Amino acid sequence: MIKPSVKILVGGADAKARPQYYVAAGADIVFRGDVDPAALVEHDWSEPRIVEDYRLPFTALSRPAFHKLGDVARYIDSHDGPVPEGVSTPVGFIYFTRGCPRECDFCESRRTKFEALPLDDAIEMLKHYRDNGIRTLNFSDDNLLLLKRDYIIALFRTLREMGFAWEFPNGLEIGRFMRGEELDSELVGHLFQNTRDPTTGHHVGAYRVFVPVETFDHRAGYKKLKPVETQNRIIGEILKSGIPEINFGVVLGRSADDHTFQNIKNGYDCIKSMVKTYAGVDARYSVFHLIPISLFRSMKTNFSADEFPEGWNFYFPIYDGDHFSAMELFDRRVEVIQSIDPSIDVIMKTGMYAYS
């Protein structure tokens, strides 16, 4: 121990999955949920401790202490790469909801309690961000579109009035834009339309969205997904709004076979043709391997997170599939991506995000 007076607190998804690893590595407290203030007061620090799930009251999270960050102006990127031209910085991460009741088996947030800030608290939080110099927002909500329609409209009207730019890096359940058989074009407009401030040139409104396509051929396994034809209709409406950047993602399950890869290519070719009809829209077409979390926590893997931690990512499988070995899954994924979006191949090799 170099400096025993410094106490080490660890939290997050990985700590939740394997807290003993962090205890062994020297952590004083490992939080498997939110930081529990009582645990800090009660802890005698003589022995490491794992604090089980704790959920901080949501309203207590609505006023981040920006003054403790030092130079907020240094926050110039989202986790999806540099922001487009005209989008002002600094960038702040924000969320108005937490939890998601959906059943997606690859997601760590599956079937968790959904909570939303009262609208007045949400607007006060926006004022707090604005007053601390934040110009651009990344929505970190697990499922923002589970909010009531009136709430969403009031929230995004306020965002525009305050001059914010924003993106949706966690993805949106775009099927929620359907009201029965009708596409809610008005709601799509509130989230995605964007302008330039005539005085400052600052981008106001949405500049980037991740659309989780999830799968083209096993859609019945995820209740949130609409038929592909309906999904593409919604994507067309989003593109019509003039959003500058859009990112699509497919999750490659263990059951992937030859038909899966052909369906990915055909499905993305269709979406790619739609995108090309809208000038000025940059797109990215991703295929992700599973990270063995959530329901897949107990799946058999070729390497543990301790043996090969760098392999536990979206771009490499550390498990064999039902029809292909891990390397065959990887090679097939690279092959289909190179045929659809070569920039993704560049991303993997350079670590630099790009859009085609």
Rank of each mutant, 00 (worst) to 15 (best):
M1H: 05
K3P: 07
V10I: 14
A13S: 12
A13H: 14
A24D: 15
G26V: 06
A27S: 07
D28V: 05
I29D: 04
F31V: 00
G33K: 07
V35E: 12
P37S: 03
A39P: 07
A39S: 11
L40S: 02
V41H: 03
V41P: 00
S46V: 09
R55K: 12
L61C: 08
A65Y: 12
F66G: 01
R74H: 07
R74Y: 08
Y75S: 04
D77L: 01
H79W: 15
H79P: 15
G81P: 06
E85R: 13
S88F: 15
V91H: 14
F96A: 10
T97W: 15
R98E: 13
C100R: 02
R102M: 14
R102V: 09
D105M: 08
F106T: 01
F106D: 02
E108I: 14
R110M: 15
R110S: 13
R111S: 03
A122V: 02
E124W: 11
L126W: 09
H128W: 15
D131H: 05
I134W: 05
D141T: 06
D141Q: 14
D141N: 07
L145V: 06
L146S: 05
R149M: 06
D150A: 14
A154L: 10
A154W: 02
A154R: 11
R157I: 07
E161H: 10
F164A: 00
L172W: 11
D184S: 05
E186N: 04
H190N: 01
N194F: 13
P198K: 00
V204Q: 01
R208D: 13
F210P: 01
H218I: 09
I234Y: 08
I234M: 10
I234D: 04
E237F: 02
I238G: 06
K240P: 09
K240V: 03
G242S: 08
I243L: 09
I243A: 08
E245D: 06
I246G: 10
F248L: 10
V251F: 10
L252W: 15
S255K: 11
A256D: 13
D257E: 08
F261T: 06
N263A: 09
G267K: 04
M274N: 03
V275S: 05
Y285H: 01
I291N: 01
I291Y: 11
P292Q: 05
M299D: 12
A305T: 12
A305E: 15
D306W: 15
E307I: 14
P309A: 05
W312V: 05
N313S: 10
F316P: 04
P317M: 01
F324N: 02
R332Q: 03
D341M: 09
I344K: 07
D345K: 05
M348I: 13
K349Q: 15
M352R: 12
